[in-house]
Amino acid sequence: MCLAIPALVAEVLEHDMAVVDVGGVRKTISLALVDGVAVGDYVIVHVGYALNRLDPEEAAKTLALFAEISAALDASSQ
């Protein structure tokens, strides 16, 4: 029930609603809990509501950190 996944906002509708795309599956959700969502944003959807926007820069930073770990380990295992 709590398993929520990042969804791409494909369309912003009236009354605080939006259409999101999750791996090709489209779903209408509510934006009542987050302000200023635009098409192209990623949001975390839970029980039909966007809980928050995903920050692409922070996601990139976390991935860069993983890449560093990977590089460091490659270097140390050689």
Binding site: L33, V34, D35, I44, L51, N52, R53, L54, D55, P56, E58, A59, K61, T62
Partner: peptide, 14 residues
């Protein structure tokens, strides 16, 4: 670790 979605304050509107 989840900085891509979590801030110190959280979702103030919610």
């Amino acid at each position: 670790e989840f900085t891509r979605a979590v801030s110190r304050e959280g979702n103030l509107k919610a």
